[in-house]
Amino acid sequence: MLPLIVENLRFTGQHGPIIKGVNFSLNDAGVTVVMGPNGAGKSVLLRLLHGLLKVNSGQILWNGTGLNEALRKRQSLLFQRPVLLRRSVLANLRFVLKQRHISADDETCLNLLSRVQLDHVAYRSARHLSGGEQQRLALARSLALKPEVLLMDEPAASLDPVSTKMIETIVRDQRANNTKVIFVTHDVSQAHRVADDVLFLHHGEVLEHTSASTFFEQPQSTQARQYLSGEIVV
């Protein structure tokens, strides 16, 4: 599906512009980390890339074509707030597999769940899981679809250290599988560990798009410098 080319992308919400003419391109598989202060437009950007929101102007091209249903089916978006069906953990996994006509027996499903360490709660109601467990179930559901592009919106935001490590391992596995991962996080050290390149978003504009090492060692914009050092970004 790559390269992804985003040209002059604009999106306006009810209360004004949110993405204000953004340009960037992602050429290689690997992990692109999106960073930026709260409200910068990271989640909106992921939704636009995945086609859940309609662009106002500009374009998003996945290997030369705009997003359509066939392309979207090859992507998976992990929402910042996981959306889980009112069913058991296992049934949540089964649901997405069935939608894609992927047949899987109990063992395959349990294996997938064990990848996110949820096999022991397979038959529990998904809504009874803790916040971090819900995040991990949503991740397992995404992985089950074997997407070529995995969009992850703060997947580790409510995870404990063990689960965080697990997610990072999964992200690395995905990269090794040639899956493109676009990963939103506020955790600087985590970004350090997983990023190939970093996209820094601020007030709906891309202030930087550089390799990870450049971003962390010599951030170009004052805003990125302030963000990285934990100062208030204006």
């Binding site: 939704r47 995945h50 859940l52 249903e69 979207r72 089916k73 998976s76 978006l77 929402f79 959306v83 069906l85 997405v96 939608q99 894609r100």
Partner: peptide, 9 residues
């Protein structure tokens, strides 16, 4: 469920 459904097509 809406966005989840849309995401799954």
């Amino acid at each position: 469920y809406d966005e989840f459904f849309k995401s799954l097509c």
